[in-house]
Design a binder for these strands. Structure first.
Lengths: 251, 251
DNA sequence: CGTTCCATTGAATGAGTTCAATAGTTGTGG
DNA sequence: CCACAACTATTGAACTCATTCAATGGAACG
């Protein structure tokens, strides 16, 4: 029915370039944790980190295994996924360069509550919980920054809880698209292109819905001219209208 | 239809006793923040806190006002509520003695995203964001403890997100009752009594449902002999079965 | 090319909401 | 101490949104 939409834009810019020392350092400096540290300190702290690469779809860690590491995204995108007893998945967050994830805990013996999966090919820096704890102790400003960030995430989680509790699927999807656009959207041909392989399933897992429902909503938004989308990509054509939908102003 | 249930047990133990200096100190020492501090340090730090009392239903702060304070519950229960554009409310958390809430932010200029309401008559200690920031800087272990706690809350928020995304209302209510029982349940006559004035509306706001649905589910659980409940109170009579329901094992 | 994965669409079902009406509890003032 | 008002809970019935089941259509990848 709908017009052909061959993937017109999925110019994958996922760097296949390697994760050089320089890139590593820049990634660390970009990390809000270390914003208050001197370049030398960052370099010193950086020695505790080890580098790992993952291919699209590969698991970085899975739920249930001992939470031994804190990770930092250098290149690529990482999905934070919570498996449910029920078998379905809940996508808690999508992280990009500069974001951290994994164990913040001082106790190394606890288990990850969620799984981390490489959404794109990516490069990640890891540090043991113990070493990170040492960094926190040695550099108090880092602890303050971390507290700030985790507080911010808690607030974001509360936003999501609010949405899940009181908004319908269309509103939640609209809000999710906007949130993603703010983080990784790139202007192209007068619209905001989401630079990530975002499947209907991913979207559904983010808003607590099924693939089918996500598909129906996206089709409707496409028909209404608010977005353009195809297999694995989405672009926003009418941000204002999408915001209206997200906040329930649209009929 | 259902048998009369005059409130047989609501022995309100909400202390009308005052929030004495001694109680204050004990509250602060009980706070995980200050677990690693010497008693003298706790006493010193405690000077930065000021005391406030609230009656049941009174607002401690509302969403939108500048987030200037961090608060600690000394006596009583505090509801953390997120108002939605839609008009309904989402109950994010219920806090008891030793729990903290409010602004963790270093920036004093941001606004509270949620409102805090006294669920019972209560006594709360407050400290300005600036003073708390000073404490954090002066006592690094406090910052580490705070980070740990907020991380734990983030995990709890993710638990809730998972539930909202993939469990039905009965499961969510069962899980909520269990969670509350773990925190404030008191054994009585072989059942766990929830020592707080918990209305159907409160429950509904916690699980993202309507009063009517909450009422229906509670009636059903009562009929099944899993709980006993009445106006403003709930008691668990069959914890195991409730756990089975929460995890979806029950048909 | 054909296989496989992902997306789309339809129809039937069902959980939860909404609207509405009744009943039980609490608190107040006569 | 009783009666009234106000609030909270319960229950029914119609409706709605999203899921489930099922079948088809396209894209990507070998």
């Amino acid at each position: 029915m709908s017009a052909l939409r061959k993937v017109p834009i999925t110019v994958e810019d996922v760097a296949s370039r390697s994760c050089t020392l320089d890139v590593r350092l820049r990634a660390l400096r970009r990390l809000p944790f270390f914003a208050d540290l001197t370049p030398e300190d960052v370099g010193h702290v950086g020695d505790a980190f080890h580098e790992r690469r993952y291919r699209e779809g590969q698991m970085i860690y899975t739920a249930g295994e001992p939470a031994l590491h804190l990770h930092v995204v250098v290149v690529g995108k990482v999905k934070l996924v919570r498996p449910t007893p029920n078998g379905q998945q809940v996508l808690l967050d999508i992280l990009g360069p500069g974001d951290f994830f994994g164990s913040l805990s001082t106790l190394g013996d606890r288990a990850y509550a969620d799984a981390a999966e490489a959404q794109t090919t990516c490069c990640v820096l890891g540090v043991t919980a113990g070493a990170f704890q040492t960094i926190l102790r040695r550099h108090p400003p880092v602890a303050l920054a971390a507290l700030e960030i985790v507080g911010e995430r808690l607030r974001a989680a509360h936003d999501l809880i609010e949405q899940l509790s009181s908004h319908d699927t269309e509103q939640r999807i609209a809000a999710t698209l906007l949130r993603l656009a703010d983080r990784v959207g790139q202007p192209q041909d007068g619209m905001l292109l989401l630079q990530m392989p975002l499947s209907r399933q991913d979207l559904a897992d983010m808003v607590g819905a099924t693939r089918e429902t996500a598909s129906r909503v996206m089709s409707q938004l496409d028909r209404d001219g608010v977005i353009r989308s195809g297999r694995g990509w989405v672009a926003l054509t009418d941000r204002d209208r999408l915001e209206a939908i997200a906040s329930g102003i649209a009929a």
